[in-house]
Design a binder for these strands. Sequence first.
DNA 1: TGACAATATTCCAAAAATGGAATATTATAA
DNA 2: TTATAATATTCCATTTTTGGAATATTGTCA
Lengths: 97, 97
Amino acid sequence: MKSNLYEKKAKIFKALSNPVRLEIMDFLANGEKCVCEIVENLDYEQPHISKSLIKLKEAGLIKDRKEGLNVYYSLKICCMGEFFNCLNKILESESKS
Amino acid sequence: MKSNLYEKKAKIFKALSNPVRLEIMDFLANGEKCVCEIVENLDYEQPHISKSLIKLKEAGLIKDRKEGLNVYYSLKICCMGEFFNCLNKILESESKS
DNA sequence: TGACAATATTCCAAAAATGGAATATTATAA
DNA sequence: TTATAATATTCCATTTTTGGAATATTGTCA
């Protein structure tokens, strides 16, 4: 039971443990975007973006919506802001020490 | 600049992306503990615990304090609670869908 | 000093993540 | 139906992570 829960949590962190995926999360914080917009704005190959999105989706962090040829992704998590504020605090306290 | 920041954040998430290290973080949420207490309470080998602690420390998530033969570890992060509340929300919303 | 307890380190093989390149799928419109 | 745009998938070599086993280091006390 308990160890299973830690594994689930670990998977979420693993999805976030990559700079490209974090950049995508940050971009999606501005609202729903289609894959093409993400590819245009972030400087990575389309298959790389696509794979990253799928990992984030599998982790339950984002959701998708199809509309014709396009697929729109958006954050599924309401508390992502707090999450990243915490991160920033960590990085601040590091830069001091 | 920016990508570097994403890399730093990714490293923090990477440190948290392992069930053993998460269990240690959880245990340390109860307050400062020496390595021996952690080894006694969690069911992993001492070298495994030791390596895990060092990774968490390198990520800036915990700090250590030596006292004689013992080394005491404690959380360095004030907002870990919010962090994990967010995680729980994520897992809840997953179990619903 | 020597023995011992607490912690850290090294070595290693297996598993997983990474990202580039090529290709496949899907939906639309002409 | 065919061409095309948007997105996803597969393949693959390289790098990184993982955790077990053995061993080393460090501090204390007799």
